[in-house]
Design a protein around this nucleic acid. Sequence first.
DNA 1: CTGCGTGCAAAAAGTTTGCACCTGT
DNA 2: ACAGGTGCAAACTTTTTGCACGCAG
Lengths: 154, 154
Amino acid sequence: MQQVERHTLRELIVESGLKATHQRIVVYEALTLLHSHHPTAEEVHLHLKPENPSISLGTVYKTLDSFVDAELIRRVLTEEGGKRYDANITAHSHIYCSNTREVIDYEDTELEQLLTDYFKKRRVENFEIKSFSVQLTGKKVEPDKQISISRLIK
Amino acid sequence: MQQVERHTLRELIVESGLKATHQRIVVYEALTLLHSHHPTAEEVHLHLKPENPSISLGTVYKTLDSFVDAELIRRVLTEEGGKRYDANITAHSHIYCSNTREVIDYEDTELEQLLTDYFKKRRVENFEIKSFSVQLTGKKVEPDKQISISRLIK
DNA sequence: CTGCGTGCAAAAAGTTTGCACCTGT
DNA sequence: ACAGGTGCAAACTTTTTGCACGCAG
């Protein structure tokens, strides 16, 4: 997902039944670039403004909504109450750091497999499950090596 | 949790180091009553108004924040972007219905145990995990008996 | 050329804050 | 008595909406 060129983004958008406008392409591109940030609409807009001064925040909101509807991207669950978006729609989990309020990707194929197997045999009553993910909450513990210059400058 | 009388609620609040004011007691009570709704601050306020006309929405917001800080209740993760609260702080998971936008409790001790065991042996790097929960997303499938008059009227 | 998408600005929703007054301990 | 909590209203943040214009198919 890291290095997808514009041509492919356009195709993905068209395949979802949406018009591939310039705005949609750059919003999608921004999401893949900022994927580890799980950005808000405003963060996407901020990121795009320098290169695309005319793009409006309203359009970013509408675009993200269309993408979610089209299942091109997904909303990230959050305790904070804001809307965050994730271009990575493959099965993966998230860790919420209650200190920094970040949402960090947690990719663990063994865990995904464990749950896939579990839900294969155990159906939930009156419910058609589309996806599942594990939400971990905790606190980042900085390893020594991460006490770098950027920290000391502050 | 269903049937906790006011005396006990008061004790829980005091034990968390908070003053047991009338407002806090009724807010907590409302949360336990509406627990399956995972209400927002506004829904709690609406529920309380008839019996407590003078309680202000601002106080409900502040009270819920204090309760979360005191770990008396927890925020419910949501895709919608609003803040929802849950008085049930025991390990349990949630199902999000993309049709009705409800968050439904999913209690499955086998699942909780599976995950507890899994995370007991597998520590997450640079992270101190405090809690985890599984988020299922899907669509409610109404069983026949639920096709009731209210549906046909529409 | 046609309808969906965009930009803009205003409005609505949701949440926080400041401050004078009140109340549990 | 006094620290902490409450009510109220204003401010702020975030998201949605309506509409005239623009552009992809």
